[in-house]
Design a protein around this nucleic acid. Structure first.
Length: 534
RNA sequence: GUUCCCAUCGUCUAGCGGUCUAGGACAUCGCCCUUUCAAGGCGGCAACACGGGUUCAAUUCCCGUUGGGAACGCCA
């Protein structure tokens, strides 16, 4: 029998990181077994399901290249089908009508809790004759779960898990308004879709026991289960928005590559010896759900970032250029300027890509190829420093575009906050303060070394002017520095700022070669003028 | 509260009774390289939660304790 798996998100929000991993594991398993990977949208909750969420889920899966077979199934469209199953079960005496009001149920749970019992439905209407039914109250249909014995599930990742049937209660199959509940819908859909393996989060493990009996009552084969552990936040608690429960789309916006994302997610709870970098082809070959770990893993932004940097380094220059083009386009209105800059960026890409960890960072660090640094004497250097209040979380910091903050102004080193393992507000604020200090320090350095910088720039201009060929600039500068008893780095420090607008950049000689003599001279002249004014 | 699941460096993990003075990766620290920043190279710090068994031998098996997590809806 060939393998059929499914990913079944409910469209009540974006595809979060845990969902993405579940989808990945399903997909990988299907690919490994040469089976099918189906998609089902569980939209039976009409209140909370949105079209925007459905769209976001599709987009995220496409971004991750987790392509599904066949048309997606929309669960709500099959509601009448599910209801029919419930009614049949009533006819067969395997389910019954229950007339309890929500208030009664709440009281029931409260009482049970007070007695130290699990807060569950007590089977009040299970054996009560329908003749006792109160008038005018629409009933729900409840499933008659077994009360004696135990249920055993042989879960592919969890192993053999047993549950005493006394723990089961009579779950609602059909609501008072006639619509099916999740418990009913999943079972009917999974059966109708011929799902052979259900791979999902282990928060569904207890549901599996209840669903098991529903399959049996319907006379259907029970699929194989594989309940994979959930992903936790850096603090070990459930993943919350504060630390990583972002939508896949947001990781995309932060400049992560789908390859990096998948590699990271794959290694969360699963390993193949000491292999860390695993291509998708290898993953398909090696993956098996039975070796997925049973302990929950914590989400670690630093590792994801590291992996992303790796995948950027091995990406082709053309691909990276394509990826950052939209980001740059947002900042540059002039098409001619943009296209020219893009050409230069491609030439300098080898130097740029090893210095960036995300596409956003790459775009920012490439910006100087498009536009000259804007030294504004009136407003002064760094007139708009980042205020620490702006940085509320490491993820926001990661997201922050230096270009947004002070486009064209001097940037003191690449301000690319490293994602800390500790993403608490305190740690983040401390980090923001450090950035602030670094910036202040850099301004002080400039004022202190202003005279020296101006002198260096003058000498640089003179030297370039006297050059017979701009090609020889590196050797000429080295010779010049040797003569003057100066360190090349010291001499070039202000030149770098003049050209790039910041004290960190790829190889300066390479950059000068790409932008050319005229542009080089122009930028240096600008900066010199600026320094002389302040 | 009840039930279920989990427990190796800060994090992700390798380990499937002797190979373990516990391996790798990320993070971190130091050195080298170097025009800056990276990348790269080399090295350092760092873990078997605890207590009982079983065994000639436990990180590995069993039982408890502790600590985490999940489920207990007319949500999915």
């Amino acid at each position: 029998m060939s393998v059929v798996v499914r990913f079944a998100p409910s469209p009540t929000g974006f595809l979060h990181i845990g969902g993405a991993r579940t989808a990945l594991f399903n997909w990988l398993f299907a690919m490994h077994c040469k089976g099918k990977f189906l998609l089902r949208i569980e939209d039976t909750d009409r209140e909370r399901s949105t079209d925007a969420a459905i769209k976001a889920i599709f987009e995220s899966l496409k971004w991750l290249e987790l392509n599904w077979n066949e048309e997606p199934v929309f669960q709500f469209a099959r509601a009448s089908c599910h209801a029919e199953v419930a009614h049949n079960l009533v006819k067969e005496g395997k389910a019954y009508y229950c007339y309890c009001s929500p208030d009664e149920l709440e009281k029931m749970r409260k009482d049970a809790l007070e007695k130290g019992l699990p807060p569950r439905y007590n089977g009040l209407w299970r054996d009560r004759p329908v003749s006792e039914a109160p008038k005018g109250i629409p009933p729900v249909i409840r499933f008659k779960a077994p009360t004696k014995g135990k249920t055993v599930i042989n879960d592919i990742t969890q192993g053999i898990v047993e549950l005493s049937n006394s723990q089961l209660d009579d779950m609602v199959l059909l609501r008072a308004d006639g619509t099916p509940t999740y418990m009913l819908s999943v079972v009917v859909d999974d059966h109708d879709m011929n799902i052979t393996h259900i791979i999902r989060g282990d928060d569904h493990l207890t549901n599996a026991f209840r669903q098991y009996h529903l399959y049996k009552a319907c006379g259907w084969d029970v699929p194989q289960f594989a309940h994979i552990p959930l992903i936790h936040g850096p603090d070990g608690a459930k993943l919350s928005k504060r630390h990583g429960a972002l939508g896949a789309e947001q990781y995309r916006a932060m400049g992560f590559l789908p390859d990096a994302m998948k590699n990271y997610l794959l290694r969360l709870g699963w390993a193949h010896g000491n292999d860390e970098i695993i291509s998708i082809e290898q993953a398909i070959e090696w993956f098996d759900i039975s070796s997925v770990g049973r302990s929950p893993a914590r989400f670690d932004m630093a590792k994801l970032t590291n992996l992303n940097a790796h995948y950027m380094r091995i990406s082709s220059n053309e691909r990276l250029l394509k990826e950052i083009k939209p980001l740059l386009k947002e900042k540059v209105k002039d098409d001619v300027l943009l296209e020219n800059g893009l050409k230069q960026i491609l030439q300098g890409m080898d130097g740029l890509k090893i210095r960036a960890k995300t596409l956003v960072e790459l775009a920012e660090n490439s910006f100087f190829y498009i536009k000259k640094p804007n030294f504004d004497a009136k407003n002064g250097l760094l007139s708009k420093p980042i205020s620490s209040s702006k940085v509320e979380g490491a993820y926001e910091a990661q997201n922050r575009s230096v270009l947004d903050i002070h486009e064209g102004h001097l940037r003191e080193s690449q301000i690319s906050p490293k994602p800390h393992e500790d993403s608490s507000i305190e740690a983040t604020n401390k980090f923001a303060e450090e950035i602030e200090l670094r910036k202040i320090k850099s301004i002080e350095n400039h004022v202190k070394n202003g005279e020296q910088s101006i002198q260096n720039l003058k000498n640089f201009l003179q030297l370039v002017e006297s050059l017979s060929s701009f090609q020889n600039i590196e050797s000429e500068i080295r010779a010049y520095c040797k003569n003057a008893g100066m360190k090349v780095g010291d001499f070039l420090y202000p030149v770098r700022i003049a050209i790039v607008g910041c004290s960190a950049s790829p190889n300066l000689f390479e950059i000068m070669g790409i932008i050319g003599k005229i542009e080089t001279m122009d930028r240096v002249q600008n900066y010199k003028n600026f320094l002389e004014l302040i």
